[in-house]
């Protein structure tokens, strides 16, 4: 993908994706007295691939988790295709929704964790089918077929292995297949390769790279600067809970305007 405009992703082709728009506006969150997110605003267009980079403890993961309401926030708003995940707006206030409703809305946003968090008591196939079956989206038979197709898509063949019998890279690929099983409009990655041995990083990045080309909105928190530069439409640099710089990867990762971004990129490359 080539970048035409610094703020917009390029229109891929005629079948440009229409769903999966994420709008974060004036988001603020405190842990006690500590402000972990400070007036963050970011709009991610349908089908866009956005990488979030920044030092440890800068609030990247927290920001990511507010998008599917795994983290609550104190002010501001997050919507996916114009809808709040965990809240309902009445006038000027957001009312927290009941859990059942949150769970239903959350299923449209997939999340892949740093530590995979596969369910160790279930096989690879069962890990993938449990959500579509228990949310009554698919029958067990349909879900099994879909699981096989998804495993194939991420390059795995043995569906009856338990997570402990798989390598880290294989586990993370099952975790990606599990997230895809609900056909999410938006897929979030929380440092998907940080817990992997160096030789296993590539196989996971290959899968994410494939996803980047099919039109799902991807938001990736990562330390893999080279990968971020390659797949992203835009890169966001976050520090101290604030967005310091945002733009196409060539700008943010090669010629950053902000001295703090320049400092960070200089340290990690």
């Amino acid at each position: 993908m080539t970048i035409i405009d610094s703020n917009r992703p390029d229109p891929v082709d005629d079948a440009a994706p229409t769903v999966g728009k994420v709008e974060i506006s004036h988001l603020t969150k405190y842990y006690g007295a500590n402000r972990v997110l400070d007036d963050v605003s970011l709009t991610v267009e349908p089908g866009e691939v956005v990488s979030i980079v920044g030092p440890s403890g800068s609030g990247k993961s927290t920001l990511l988790r507010t998008i599917n309401h795994l983290e609550t926030f104190d002010a501001g708003s997050v919507t996916v295709d114009g809808r709040y995940i965990g809240y309902e707006r009445r006038g000027d206030t957001l009312h927290e929704l009941r859990e059942a409703e949150v769970l239903k809305r959350r299923a449209q946003v997939g999340l892949v964790f740093q530590n995979f968090n596969l369910f160790p008591n279930l096989t690879a196939r069962e890990n993938i089918t449990i959500a579509p079956v228990s949310l009554k989206r698919l029958s067990q038979v349909e879900a099994d077929q879909r699981a096989m197709a998804l495993l194939q898509r991420v390059g795995l063949h043995d569906s009856e292995k338990y997570p402990a019998q798989l390598s880290g890279g294989q586990q993370q690929r099952v975790a990606i297949a599990r997230a895809l099983a609900l056909d999410p409009k938006v897929l979030l990655f929380d440092e998907p390769t940080s817990a992997l041995d160096p030789e296993l990083v590539a196989e996971v990045l290959d899968v994410i790279r494939d996803l980047a080309t099919v039109g799902t909105t991807l938001i990736i928190v990562t330390h893999e600067i080279g990968f971020a530069r390659e797949v992203s439409d835009r890169v966001v640099f976050v520090e101290d809970g604030r967005i310091i710089e945002i733009g196409p990867p060539e700008q943010v990762l090669r010629n950053p305007i902000n001295p703090r971004t320049r400092d960070f990129i200089g340290r990690v490359l």
């Binding site: 769970l103 964790f113 530590n115 008591n121 959500a131």
Partner: peptide, 27 residues
Amino acid sequence: VDAGQTHAAAALGLPRRVRFFRIILPQ
């Protein structure tokens, strides 16, 4: 049981009952 299991189950939108009886309790 590792807290990540609850997070993963929540992120998948698994209902409370499924989360408890299929994920947390067996572990």
